[in-house]
Nucleic acid binder design. Structure first.
Lengths: 188, 188
DNA sequence: TATATACTATACTGTATAGTATATTTTAAG
DNA sequence: CTTAAAATATACTATACAGTATAGTATATA
């Protein structure tokens, strides 16, 4: 069963990504979701809270999906980081992909004091730490260094893909990632 | 002498980067620039034209700056691509750096039919072609492939830096770039 | 001095926005 | 059948925004 709250979240996620966050009014959201503002404001105190909820949901969805995919290699920890960008490619090229929420949000809310910016920043950091953990498990010496490089490739490729769909950026990033991982392994 | 038009452009560039484009009204711009809306609309037909002008100006400023820096190595074309990320680092860490205009603009205007998005996309492509030319001059075989990888590193590092100032992303991207360039040279 | 140009001051129009108030209808459970 | 909760319908407030209209001032040049 899809509750109205979930429907509002899903529609918001979609509209924020395809039209921009500030450019999407709550009137548009409720119209597309087939409900009214009264209902929206019952579940979300303000538009800011709705945006934060969309960010949380998107990030959690991705993390859950990725953990499932990598779970297959639980007994061979060194393969996880090798496969990471294969799954990123799969995820980015899937038809339902509409972009990475925290990348867009941080651009629309550049002020570091803003709660939305802060959450974006935190999610970016969390994903980098996630990569670093994979690198550690693969016995890589400078795990943090490699994680930073790979997260830059990730954010850059997604950015390039958002600026021009089908640019081939993901494939290129995957190749670069493999090179950098190989190099890091050699130095460990 | 700074003309009012230049002043408006400069103030807009700054406000767009620090507060976001859609979140910055023309009233704020003229207030900060110390002029009136009548004057702004004398030089720029619409806000959209102003945004486009800001993008053009920012891109040209960067290209000019970079060409000057690389001009020193005009007689050793293979050194240019090696030094590229050193200058990118210098540029990004300079106090006047406020971000890369086309990266933010493409996030705030995600629709591919939008003129602002189209210009952003074009500028991203132009910068990639610029890198590709450097790679060709350095006798690198897969120049386009390397250029794509390096432009992803560039956009990713800038993105990471916008999400968290002083994250060290540029240093990390520079290191990754050197590795990828070395690898591409070996394969040429 | 005359005249054009650049700029200012300010009030206005029309639209979009976030959020609220009030009353009504639907739905589900005792 | 009754009652409470969930959702709708609609009108409203208050503010912000892009862009315009009108009237006036400052400056430079011919």
């Amino acid at each position: 069963m899809t509750t109205l709250k979930q429907k509002i979240l899903q529609v918001s996620t979609d509209l924020f990504q395809t039209r921009g966050i500030n450019s999407t009014g709550v009137d548009t959201i409720v119209a597309v979701a087939g409900t009214t503002k009264m209902t929206l404001y019952k579940y979300f105190e303000t538009k800011e809270e709705l945006i934060l909820a969309v960010l949380q949901q998107s990030h959690q969805d991705f993390q859950t999906w990725m953990n499932d995919k990598l779970g297959v290699f639980n007994d061979k920890p060194d393969e996880k980081i090798q496969k990471l960008f294969d799954f990123i490619e799969e995820w980015v090229t899937s038809p339902s992909f509409v972009g990475v929420a925290f990348i867009k949000a941080s651009a629309e809310f550049p002020n570091e004091e803003n709660r939305i910016h802060q959450l974006s920043s935190q999610q970016s950091r969390e994903f980098r730490q996630f990569i670093s953990k994979l690198a550690q498990e693969a016995q890589i010496k400078d795990a943090d260094g490699l994680a930073m490089q790979l997260s830059i490739l990730f954010e850059g490729a997604v950015q390039a893909e958002q600026i021009k769909r089908g640019s081939g950026a993901i494939k290129s990033a995957k190749k670069a990632a493999k090179s950098l991982i190989d190099l890091a392994i050699k130095q460990s």
